[in-house]
Nucleic acid binder design. Sequence first.
DNA 1: ATGGTTGCCGTGCAA
Length: 262
Amino acid sequence: MRLVTWNINSVRLRAPLVHRLVDEIAPDVLCLQETKVMDELFPHDELAELFPHRHARGMKAYNGVAILSRIPFTATGGDDWCGRSDARHASVTFEGGVELHDFYVPAGGDEPDPEINDKFAHKLRFLDEMTAWSGAQANPEAKRILVGDLNIAPAENDVWSHKQLLKIVSHTPVEVDRLQALQASHDWVDAVRHFIPDSEKLFSWWSYRSRDWRESNRGRRLDHVWVTPALTKSLKGASVFDDARDWTKPSDHAPVVVDIDI
DNA sequence: ATGGTTGCCGTGCAA
């Protein structure tokens, strides 16, 4: 299974780019975030030929996640978090029992202080709820995959400058601690760092606000693919498809690709 | 220290 996660930043605007993605790297399963469309308006017609199986949870203008697949699923779901119905989680189960969870974690605003920034407080609460959820079902036999835009770049080489980003939301110690607690709660394995060493800079997002994203390369690794230990031996490869960041009218995120024997 | 860009919607807000 070739699994791809991509913050597409409007699935209606960029449905043509999904076609190009399929032409170039042929995902079997594509997990999207920031679809920015309510379910009634999801562009099923444009995507049905590429992905006959689709599960979308969206809302108007903001957030929204979707799982598109060539492989059938046997169940679909998705929870609400922090008491809000803001379409940040979708899940499916494949034959054989492998669960896939697609998340869009709140970005958290600009000010990294939960006392004065409600959006940052929401982000921390969201991560705490995810950790409780993940830990409650932890089981060494379980075959689960967690992907998405987690809006945190945890390691020094997940950002262009560790020192300069320590007080920038997405790389502050308080968020990184929360993400590590989530990861520890089910012994989640980072499928991308499983193949690409920690010593290597690796990013999946580059701001629109730079003249030449590749030349300045001020990126962050915000998009992640994790698997439970029972799936570690099934991992076959991982990469960031940064070519897509150069496409016409690109998303500011690049697709993250993981190959798994399932 | 500042501003830089994008999408959706409606001319502001979130990223």
